[in-house]
């Protein structure tokens, strides 16, 4: 009798392992704005990201307040005037890897992927589709991507007085090291 339970539990465990999930809470995202009068860069090293290797679900949750700027005043303006992080604390991306079959999660290697989904930022949601790279190793998966966002798409307006200091298009750099979730 007891054996049945043990076998069942064992089976459950096995199933869990094959339905792999990869997670990080210390992912790194930085963005750069390259305007004629000023270059701005801000880093966030507390990015939440999760990837399901079975379904291809790939999600990100980024706390806007965690972006660190070189200048204290910029950071305040970013939170207060632009992304309004008291109203919209997180940027959330919910997407999928459509070409999941190209990736062998069992085999170490570098795989080109496409990620498509909904980017929710400053209360606005936009469909995006970007290219990225997955590096699979025994330690986990490193996912990197560089892409651009138009800030106007997310209802963030730049006043005339700082027009030359903030670019219309912001470059986003994603670098997350996902570790297998074992429970």
């Amino acid at each position: 009798m007891k054996k049945v339970i043990i076998i069942a539990l064992g089976l459950g465990l096995a199933l869990n392992l094959s339905a792999q999930r990869f997670l990080t809470k210390t992912g790194h995202i930085y963005f750069s704005s390259d305007a004629p009068l000023e270059k701005i860069e801000a880093h966030n090293r507390q990015v939440n990201a999760a990837l399901d290797s079975r379904t291809g679900d790939f999600i990100f949750k980024v706390l806007m307040k965690s972006f660190a700027f070189e200048k204290a005043l910029m950071q305040e303006h970013f939170n207060e005037n632009y992304v309004e992080s008291d109203l919209y604390p997180n940027a959330i991306f919910v997407g999928k890897i459509p070409n999941l079959d190209d990736v062998d999660f069992e085999k170490a290697g570098t795989y080109q992927v496409t990620v498509m989904g909904d980017m929710n930022l400053h209360g606005k949601s936009q469909k995006i589709e970007e290219d990225g790279v997955l590096v699979v190793s025994k330690d986990g998966i490193q996912a990197t991507s560089t892409f651009n966002l138009e800030i106007a798409d997310y209802d963030i307006s730049i006043p005339g007085a700082v027009a030359g200091k903030i670019a219309d298009e912001i470059q986003i750099h994603v670098d997350v090291n996902l570790k297998a979730l074992n429970k």
Binding site: I5, A8, L15, R54
Partner: peptide, 28 residues
């Protein structure tokens, strides 16, 4: 005996059901 078997079967299913959970919960 029978209930134990049922529990065992339920346990077996519990894992894949958990996998359907909102992945966002992982970020709690």
């Amino acid at each position: 005996m029978k209930t134990q078997l049922i529990i065992a079967i339920l346990l077996l299913f519990a894992v894949p059901i958990m996998a359907q959970d909102d992945m966002m919960d992982l970020f709690a």
